[in-house]
């Protein structure tokens, strides 16, 4: 579904590359997690994939078509979630405003908004303003907006970074549920190794400047459970493998 070939990005001409020779393929309905140290270029990668910034080199193909601008049917949950919310719009307004441009009627948009807000546990906060909510709640508004949009591919940049462990577990399961029900493809950037292994079918370990150091298949049973899955010996093994890969000295790049 998504083919990334030899992607590089250098921000300042002649400067250090933020991404160099990134290569990977994501299949239809796959759930891929991306881990990498801070500053290794994960956000840069997502911004290129979303068509917001052009890569310096390389190509991105989404469903056979080259990505040149923001593709339809893609939603992107930003790392700066609070700055991606419109302070002059209510929570419901923030979730629903993109829907009009997707061609939904007012009633359809309202229904989708209500459903998405309920899914993230904010059903009763639709009329609040984002700045009246806590950081974690704001993050869930940004997630609800992406869900309401019903994309075919969802990019998420550390979307659960500022919620408590309990809410985080709930949101992880919610996301898995949505991923299955709506048959979407998910690219999920996280710093949390447990989360990466728990959610995904494949973990891409990036090294700096962003390139795939190792791709680790997560061969856990498809049905995940916060308690049972994390108790499996295989879960522990995969965890250690990802950790080792993150810490490994780089041998792939020149």
């Amino acid at each position: 579904m998504l083919v990334v070939s030899d992607l590089s990005k250098t921000y300042a001409p002649g400067g250090e590359p933020a991404m160099a020779g990134l290569d990977f393929t994501v299949g239809e309905r796959e759930f891929v997690c991306i881990v990498g140290s801070s500053g290794c270029g994960k956000t840069t990668m997502l911004r290129c994939l979303s068509g917001l910034i052009p890569p310096t080199e390389g190509s991105i193909e989404l469903e056979g078509r080259a990505v040149q601008g923001p593709p339809e049917d893609m939603a992107y949950v930003f790392q700066d979630y609070s700055r991606s919310l419109l302070p002059w719009q209510t929570v419901a307004g923030n979730v629903s405003f993109p829907l009009k441009y997707k061609g939904l009627s007012k009633a359809e948009a309202a229904a989708a908004t209500e459903e998405a807000l309920a899914a993230v546990g904010l059903a009763d906060r639709g009329r609040s303003y984002p700045w009246q909510l806590s950081g974690g709640m704001q993050q869930r508004v940004a997630i609800a907006r992406a869900l309401a949009y019903k994309p075919r591919i969802l990019l998420m940049d550390e979307p659960f970074a500022s919620v408590d462990a309990q809410t985080r577990a709930e949101l992880e399961d919610l996301l898995l549920d949505i991923w299955r029900r709506f048959e979407i493809t998910v690219l999920f950037v996280t710093h949390d190794i447990d989360e990466a292994v728990y959610l995904s079918q494949r973990v891409l370990v990036l090294h700096k400047p962003a390139h795939v150091f190792e791709a680790i298949d997560v061969d856990l049973p498809a049905e995940r459970d916060q308690m049972d899955t994390k108790k499996l010996p295989r879960f522990g093994e995969l965890r250690s493998r990802v950790l080792a890969s993150l810490r490994a000295p780089d041998t792939t790049s020149a």
Binding site: S50, G51, G69, P70, F78, P98, Y101
Partner: peptide, 15 residues
Amino acid sequence: TDPTLRDTARSYGLP
């Protein structure tokens, strides 16, 4: 205007 807001609008395909 906050660039993140601009990016949000662009990524959701607002003309």
